[in-house]
């Protein structure tokens, strides 16, 4: 992807993920080092007032990271921001998308701002975010 091909309104190829399972969460807890029991231990989750365990926000952000690094080489990534807008529950199928919303210059470098969204199969937002990439 060259700078001339990147323009406002351009959509990144979407990334569709399989449903979140307990295995997804167990693997992510181990691999990410986030052992907070609320994501892997239903007894702890229930005591905390939740119906069940739920996904780490950082799992969904990692999926958005894949969306970005699928599209451009990762060393071009300058900033990556996420606001966790909703809890991702077991069975949710996450779809990651991004749209170029701004072309700007910072520190002598040409950048594109990409607005990011991760939603589940019901269209509920899980992450709203953005990224800056060098183009």
């Amino acid at each position: 992807m060259t700078a001339t091909e990147i323009h406002i309104g351009l959509q990144l190829p979407a990334l569709e993920l399989p449903p979140i399972t307990r295995t997804t969460l167990a693997l992510f807890a181990g691999a990410s080092g986030d052992h907070n029991p609320i994501h892997i231990d239903i007894d702890f989750a229930r005591k905390a007032g939740m119906a069940d365990v739920f996904a780490h926000g950082m799992l969904v952000m990692a999926y958005l990271g894949r969306l970005l690094s699928n599209w451009l080489p990762q060393p071009r990534l300058r900033a990556f921001n996420a606001r966790f807008a909703g809890i991702t529950h077991l069975g949710h199928r996450i779809r990651c998308g991004g749209t170029v919303t701004e072309i700007l210059e910072r520190d002598g470098e040409r950048l594109a701002r990409i607005e990011l969204q991760a939603v589940n199969q019901y269209g509920e937002s899980k992450i709203l975010g953005d990224a800056l990439v060098a183009i």
Partner: peptide, 25 residues
Amino acid sequence: EPFAWFGTVGLSLPRILHGEQSFVY
């Protein structure tokens, strides 16, 4: 003890959520 600082500032593991995360590379 990666979550030790939660206790230091008074955060309690069962009641917290990750609100936002940013990276500048």
